[in-house]
Simulated assay, not measured.
Amino acid sequence: MATVVSDTGVGPLLRGWREQRRLSQWELALRADSSARHISFVETGRSRPSEEMVLRLAEHLEVPVRERNALLLAAGYAPRYPESPLDAPRLETLREGIERLLQGYDPYPALVVDGSYTVLAANRGAGLLLAGLPEHLLAPPLNAMRLTLHPEGLAPRIRNLREWRGHLLAQMERQMGLMRSEALRELHAEVAAYPLPPNGEADEPPAEGTDPYIALPLRIEHDGRVLSFVSSISTFNAPMDVTVAELAVEAFLPADPETAAYVRSLG
């Protein structure tokens, strides 16, 4: 996923991020220990911000690491954050930590995805959800959104597909607001256009007497029974590498005692 650099300079880019965050120039200046006048001069191109100021504004605007590099380039500075392949030697400790984390979730499904939802790693428990899918969906590179929403993927098995599909599409839309990624936009357009399978027109209600879920569950059929999972997503704090910044570990934890007991019996 390439960094997108604007040829209009850093000012309009910063203004775009500020407006997206719904901050006034005065509010941003107060947070960044600057002045509204200076922020205005930067945004209009009348003043060239220092490298330190670009990074400070990016931090207070919660700009993703990849886009901070784009701001630096637009301001005439070198990128600050490297983008290392996940198999790079410098990320060996990270890879080992992720592997231990995935193993720790077993037998419950867990996987690691990048900013475009490409599956980079998964544990054995993930095979519970992916078993029986066609080979063309399981061929590398696997994509979590395609696997879930494709009419030949998990979609026909999901009993609350309308709710879960809406949740995933909204998640992608929020991601697109943070990442200027054409690949992500193309993926969103692709999966949003998938036709609903025959059982996807209406969600099947949970069985009577079921306790309310603590979060929206993924209710999915497996071997003649319905399993319920809630999803938890973990990211890394204060990342200093683009690759690390875009990694997310998603775990599917049992939403009810029956699912927990069944998955443990398989494990």
Rank of each mutant, 00 (worst) to 15 (best):
R56N: 13
D33M: 08
F41L: 02
H60V: 07
R18Y: 02
L71Q: 03
E43A: 02
Q25D: 03
P12G: 12
R22M: 15
E19Y: 04
P49R: 03
A29L: 07
L28S: 05
R15A: 06
V42W: 01
R37K: 13
D33E: 14
A58Q: 09
E59C: 13
W26R: 13
L13W: 08
L13T: 03
I39F: 05
S34M: 12
R46Q: 10
L72H: 03
V54Q: 03
A29E: 02
R46N: 04
E19F: 02
S35F: 00
D33H: 07
L57D: 11
D33G: 15
S34D: 08
E51S: 14
A32Y: 09
V54T: 10
T44W: 03
A58I: 07
E59R: 15
E67P: 03
A32P: 02
L30Y: 15
A29W: 04
S40P: 03
L61Q: 09
G16R: 07
L71G: 05
I39P: 00
V54L: 08
L61Y: 06
E43V: 01
V54M: 05
T44C: 05
V42A: 01
S34E: 08
H38V: 08
E51Y: 06
S24T: 14
R46S: 06
V65N: 11
R31H: 09
Q25I: 01
H38S: 03
A70E: 12
G16Q: 10
E27N: 11
S35R: 10
R15F: 08
R15E: 11
E51H: 07
R56F: 06
E51C: 12
N69C: 14
E67D: 15
R56H: 14
Q20M: 14
E51W: 01
M53C: 07
L61W: 08
